[in-house]
C-alpha cells in the first residue's frame, strides 16, 4: 500500500515520515509551548523579588544619605535615622563570626574529607547537618546560657559573634568537605604517590583546586549570617557607642529592622519604619554584593581550573 506525502511523491507507508496523528501533533505543540511557558513561570518567580526590592528601596529612599550611613552619634543612631553604629556593629560581628566559622569549618571540613574514616566522617556530617537544622532561636538560647550566663561574658559582641558563627560553620563545613571530597581521587593519589604527605597534598594540590568552592561557601555563609536576627538579639546588648572591646554591647542592622517594627515612631524627626527599611536596604545591598563577588570569583577560578583531570 502506498501513500502520498505533502510534496506529492508516492511512497510505501513504512517510509513516510509525516505523522498527522493527534497525539504527535499534541506532543509537538507541547514542546513548542513549554518553551514559552518556562520563561513565563520564571517571570512569576522574579516579579515578587523585584517588587520586594522596589518596596524596600522606595521606603528607605527618604532617609538614605551618606551622612546617615557614617553618623555614629549616640542619639542620632537611637532616635534619628543614622545607622553608622549598626553598620560598624554588623561589620564587627560578621568579622569575628566569619573568622571563627572559617577556622572551624575549614579545619573540620578538611579533617572530615581527608583524615577521618568513612564511619566517623558520617557521624560528623550528621552532627553538622543537625546543627544546620537547629531552629535559630534554640541556638540563640544556647549562646545566651553558655556565653552570656555560664561563661559570664554578659550580653556582648563576643557572645553574639560566637553565636552567629554557629550558623555559618555548617555552611562552610559542608562546602569545604564537599570541595575536598570531590577532588578526583587519582589527583589525590598522584600527589601522595609522588611522595607527598597528606598535609603537603592538602596545601599544595587540594587547596588550589578546592579554593573556589570554599570561597563560595564562606561568602554564602556570610550572607546567611548577615540575615540572622533573633539569636544575636538574645546574646548582645544594643549599644550607642562603637564597640571598644569584645565585652561591649553592639548594635547591628537586623536589630534595627526588628526594633523598628516593634514600637511606634517617637517624636519629630524620627521615623522608625524608614530606618528599619534603611537597614533592610543595607543588608540587601551587602548580600547582593557578596553574591556578585562569589559569582565573579567562581567564574574566574573555574576558568583557571579548566583542563583539570580531563
Amino acid at each position: 500500500m502506498a501513500t502520498s506525502t505533502p510534496t506529492g511523491s508516492v511512497l510505501p507507508r513504512d517510509e513516510v515520515l509525516f505523522d498527522r496523528s493527534l497525539r504527535t501533533r499534541w506532543r509537538l505543540g507541547f514542546d513548542r509551548w513549554i518553551g514559552w511557558l518556562l520563561p513565563l513561570l520564571f517571570l512569576v518567580a522574579i516579579v515578587p523579588i523585584v517588587d520586594l526590592v522596589y518596596f524596600v528601596v522606595r521606603a528607605a529612599y527618604p532617609v538614605l544619605s551618606w551622612g546617615n550611613l557614617t553618623n555614629t552619634q549616640p542619639y542620632a543612631n537611637q532616635n534619628g535615622n543614622a545607622v553608622g553604629l549598626a553598620l560598624i556593629g554588623t561589620f564587627d560581628l560578621m568579622a569575628i563570626a566569619t573568622a571563627v566559622a572559617v577556622l572551624l569549618g575549614l579545619f573540620g571540613g578538611i579533617a572530615t574529607a581527608e583524615f577521618l574514616s568513612e564511619r566517623s566522617a558520617g557521624w560528623v556530617r550528621t552532627s553538622v547537618n543537625m546543627l544546620a537544622g537547629t531552629p535559630s532561636v534554640v541556638v540563640g538560647y544556647f549562646g545566651y546560657f553558655a556565653f552570656v550566663l555560664y561563661f559570664g561574658w554578659g550580653l556582648s559582641l563576643i557572645a553574639g559573634a560566637l553565636t552567629l558563627s554557629f550558623f555559618m560553620v555548617p555552611y562552610i563545613f559542608r562546602t569545604v568537605d564537599l570541595a575536598y571530597t570531590s577532588i578526583p581521587r587519582p589527583i589525590r593519589e598522584a600527589a601522595l604517590g609522588s611522595g607527598a604527605r597528606p598535609y603537603q597534598y592538602i596545601l599544595k594540590v587540594g587547596t588550589p583546586i578546592a579554593f573556589p568552592q570554599v570561597l563560595t561557601g564562606v561568602f554564602l555563609a556570610m550572607a546567611i549570617g548577615l540575615g540572622e536576627t533573633a539569636p544575636i538579639v538574645l546574646t548582645t546588648l544594643p549599644s550607642l557607642l562603637v564597640p571598644s572591646s569584645l565585652n561591649s554591647g553592639v548594635t547591628f542592622l537586623t536589630y534595627l529592622i526588628y526594633d523598628g517594627f516593634n514600637h511606634p515612631s517617637t517624636g519629630p524627626g524620627s521615623n522608625e519604619l524608614a530606618k528599619a527599611f534603611e537597614a533592610a536596604f543595607l543588608v540587601m545591598m551587602i548580600v547582593i554584593a557578596l553574591n556578585v563577588v562569589v559569582r565573579v570569583f567562581a567564574a574566574r577560578y573555574k576558568k583557571r581550573l579548566e583542563g583539570l583531570y580531563q
Binding site: P184, A190, A191, G193, G195, A196, L308
Partner: peptide, 20 residues
Amino acid sequence: PVLVRRRIGMVFQRPTVFPM
C-alpha cells in the same frame, strides 16, 4: 609508605596534573 612511593612511582589512567 611515603618513601616506598618515592621509589616506586605511579601514573594513572587519566592525566592527573595539578593546577600549577
